[in-house]
C-alpha cells in the first residue's frame, strides 16, 4: 500500500469523496480507493491470492458489468469467509459492495452487476472468520457507446 494512502483517515477520505463529487462526479482517484481499502483492512496485511475475480476484460457498456467473486475456502464453521468487499478506482465513490457470508453458503461465491464509468482496475478483498485478508485485482476496459440517449 502506498504511503500517501495510508496517511488518509476516514474523515479525510470522506471529505475527499464529497469534494470530488461536487466538482467532478465522474472521477474518484486511485488514492481514494486506497483510502477506502484502508478503511476496510484497518491496515492489516493483505495477501494476494485465494480470491478469483471474474470480469469480462472488455465490455460494451459500463452500466451493467457482470462480476463474480469467489474465494478458495472450505466454508466450515471453523474456517470460512465472512466478508468480501469490492472497490473501484474511478467511479465517484470507491466502494461497490460489501458482502457478508456465513458457513451456510457452502461455497464462497457471489455474483452481481456493477457500473463503471470508465476503464479501470477493480479490487476484491476477502476476510476470513479469523481476520486474515486475501485479494485479487482485475482490469476492465469499457468501450464507449456510439449512439447514447442524449
Amino acid at each position: 500500500m502506498r504511503l500517501d494512502a495510508m496517511m488518509f483517515t476516514r474523515r479525510d477520505a470522506l471529505t475527499g469523496i464529497l469534494l470530488a463529487c461536487a466538482l467532478r462526479p465522474a472521477a474518484a482517484t486511485p488514492a481514494m480507493m486506497e483510502a477506502a481499502i484502508a478503511d476496510f483492512t484497518k491496515n492489516r496485511p493483505v495477501t494476494e491470492g485465494r480470491v478469483k475475480l471474474d470480469l469480462p476484460p472488455l465490455v460494451e457498456n459500463g452500466n451493467a458489468v457482470p462480476l463474480t467473486v469467489s474465494v478458495d475456502s472450505p466454508m466450515t464453521a471453523q474456517d470460512f469467509i465472512s466478508r468480501i468487499a469490492l472497490f473501484n478506482e474511478k467511479n465517484p465513490q470507491p466502494n461497490i459492495a460489501l458482502f457478508y457470508l456465513t458457513p451456510h453458503a457452502g461455497r464462497a461465491q457471489v455474483s452481481t452487476r456493477i457500473r463503471l464509468g470508465d476503464s479501470q482496475f477493480i479490487t476484491a478483498i476477502a476476510e476470513t472468520n479469523t481476520g486474515a485478508l486475501f485479494s485479487a485485482k482485475a482490469e476492465l476496459i469499457v468501450t464507449l457507446p456510439a449512439c447514447a440517449e442524449n
Binding site: 452500466n63 451493467a64 458489468v65 473501484n88 467511479n91 465517484p92 465513490q93 466502494n95 461497490i96 459492495a97 460489501l98 458482502f99 457478508y100 457470508l101 456465513t102 451456510h104 453458503a105 457452502g106 461455497r107 461465491q109 457471489v110 455474483s111 452481481t112 452487476r113 456493477i114 457500473r115 463503471l116
Partner: peptide
C-alpha cells in the same frame, strides 16, 4: 445466511446471486 451493503456502483435493477447449502 447472506447479506450485502450496496453502493451506487451497483447496476439498476440489482442482480445478486449467492450460494447456500
Amino acid at each position: 445466511i447472506f447479506a450485502a451493503d450496496l453502493f451506487p456502483a451497483i447496476s439498476a435493477n440489482p442482480f445478486i446471486a449467492f450460494t447456500f447449502m
